[in-house]
Simulated scan of single mutants.
Amino acid sequence: MTSQASRQNPRSAGKWVGGIVFTFFIAMLGALLAKIPGLHHAGQLACAIIIAIIYRQFFGYPEVLRSGITFSSQKLLRLAIILYGLKLNIDTVFHDGLGLLLRDAVVILFAISVMIWLGKVFKADKHISLLLGVGTGVCGAAAIAAVAPIIKTKDEDTAISVGIIALMGTVFAIGYTLIEPFLPLTPTDYGIWSGISLHELAHVAIAAEPAGEDALAIALLAKLGRVFLLVPLCFILIYIMKFKNKSEQTQNKVAFPWFLLGFILMSLFGSYVLGNTVPISENTMEGISAATTWILTAAMVGLGLNVSLKDLRSKALKPLLAISITSLLLSVAAYFII
Rank of each mutant, 00 (worst) to 15 (best):
H127V: 10
K154Y: 06
N245K: 14
L221E: 06
I238C: 08
A219F: 14
L167Q: 05
D96S: 14
A333R: 07
K126N: 12
I50P: 01
I192W: 03
A145Q: 02
L198F: 05
T153P: 01
Q44G: 05
L321Q: 06
I69Y: 00
Q251L: 09
S67N: 10
G163H: 10
E213N: 13
K253W: 13
F256H: 08
E180K: 08
K87W: 15
G68C: 01
L45R: 00
K120I: 00
A111Y: 04
A202T: 08
H127D: 05
F243W: 15
L320F: 10
S271I: 05
I192R: 05
F59I: 07
Q8Y: 11
S267M: 10
A48I: 07
G175I: 05
A46C: 09
T92M: 11
G302A: 09
V273T: 09
A13T: 13
P279F: 15
S3E: 10
I164F: 11
L77Y: 03
I323Y: 03
L131C: 04
Q249P: 10
F336G: 04
P319S: 10
I238Y: 07
L98I: 12
L29F: 15
I206S: 05
I116Y: 13
A52F: 00
D214A: 15
S308W: 02
P62A: 12
L329Q: 00
I108T: 01
F59D: 07
A48M: 10
I288F: 14
Q74G: 00
S194T: 11
M115K: 01
L329G: 01
S73Y: 00
V64Y: 13
L233V: 09
D155T: 13
A290Q: 15
S73K: 04
G270W: 07
L330S: 03
L33Y: 12
H95V: 01
V93S: 10
D104Q: 07
I295S: 07
V17W: 10
L132C: 08
Q57G: 11
A202W: 02
I50L: 15
A124H: 02
S281A: 12
L79R: 02
A207C: 03
L329M: 04
L45D: 01
S314G: 14
F94L: 12
C139K: 08
D96E: 13
M285G: 09
C47M: 12
R11E: 09
L131W: 04
L317R: 03
I240A: 09
K123T: 05
H199G: 02
I164Y: 08
A142M: 04
L321D: 00
P257L: 13
F71I: 05
A148G: 02
N252V: 14
I112K: 03
Q8V: 11
I128E: 00
A334K: 01
L320T: 08
I288W: 09
L220F: 05
I323K: 07
S67A: 14
I128Q: 06
L230F: 13
L261S: 09
F94K: 00
F25L: 15
M285D: 02
C47N: 06
K154L: 07
P10S: 04
T153I: 07
S289K: 14
R226Q: 11
L100K: 07
K244M: 11
T326F: 03
T297L: 15
N276A: 04
A146Q: 05
Q251P: 00
